[in-house]
Amino acid sequence: MIRVLIADDEPMVRVGVKTILDTDPDITVVAEAATGRQAVEAVRAHRPDVALLDIRMPDMDGLAALTELRRVAPDVAVVMLTTFDEDDFVARALAGDARGFLLKAADPRELVIGVRAVADGAAYLSPRIAQRVIARVAGDGLARRQAATERLAALSDRERQVLALVGDGLSNADIAARLYISEGTVKAHVSAILSRLGAANRVQAAIVAWHAGLAG
């Protein structure tokens, strides 16, 4: 069972998100919060697998709550859920080690897919945001490709295979099945990849893979 926290200052939004998540028998909402500070306390109390955080909340906004959660509950997968998709919000969320970024205006099925993906160890970006990230990567040109390729020199052949699949958005379980190795081995490879690339999270590692032409 995937345990989820919903944090949003609008009660109707929380009800709507919970209603969507309740359609999946493998997902249960264990707590709700109306501010970022309440979200942090709820995570401490309930230890959900996934925390859905609105960006704009009173008292402590979602980005500040993300920073605090990375300190007090690093194992909780944080997904930013918002009406805003400005590049600055996306960049700050990913730099803060958010596992995903979903838009409230997206197809409701995307919410369930995103929650399941991050709970399984993958990263998930709303397709509209992913297109913009990829477009920026593609537009950065030869210099970024060369820099990313140089960073790959620190990886073994197997780690490059794993990184390519991370870049394609596969979860640990999917990577294990694709490469015929255990999920525990995949986790070990991903941990080593993040360390050697100096990447804070899977999304940053995936961007390196895109830059280097390993994925996409």
Rank of each mutant, 00 (worst) to 15 (best):
L179I: 03
T185V: 09
R178M: 03
T185M: 07
A188F: 04
V203I: 15
G167C: 10
I134G: 08
A138H: 04
R196W: 01
V186R: 06
A177K: 08
D168Y: 04
T185N: 10
R145W: 00
V133I: 04
T185S: 14
V166C: 05
D174C: 07
Q131M: 07
R144M: 12
R136Y: 02
I181L: 01
R144L: 10
S156A: 07
L163D: 12
A138V: 02
R202Y: 04
V137T: 13
A138S: 08
S156H: 10
Q146L: 09
R196L: 10
I193G: 08
R160V: 07
A192K: 09
R132N: 15
L155F: 01
G198V: 04
V186K: 07
G184Y: 03
D157E: 15
N172E: 05
R178T: 11
L194T: 03
D140Q: 12
H189W: 02
V162S: 00
G167T: 09
R158A: 11
Y180A: 14
G139Q: 14
V133T: 07
K187Y: 01
V166W: 06
R158Y: 10
G184N: 10
I134L: 13
A130K: 15
N201F: 05
A177P: 04
S195C: 03
N201T: 03
S182I: 12
A135E: 12
Y180K: 12
L165Y: 10
E183L: 06
D140G: 01
V133Y: 02
G169M: 09
G198S: 11
A192F: 00
Q161G: 08
A135G: 14
A148V: 01
L152S: 01
L170F: 15
L163H: 08
S156Y: 06
I134S: 06
V190N: 02
L163Y: 09
Q161E: 14
G198I: 11
Q161T: 11
S182G: 13
G139P: 13
I193L: 08
R132V: 12
V203Q: 11
N172P: 00
Q161A: 09
G184A: 09
N172F: 05
A154W: 00
Q131Y: 13
A154L: 02
G141Y: 01
S195K: 15
R178N: 13
R132S: 14
A147C: 04
E150A: 15
A143Q: 11
S195T: 11
A147H: 12
G184T: 11
V137S: 11
R145E: 03
A130N: 14
V190E: 08
L197Y: 14
V137F: 05
L179C: 06
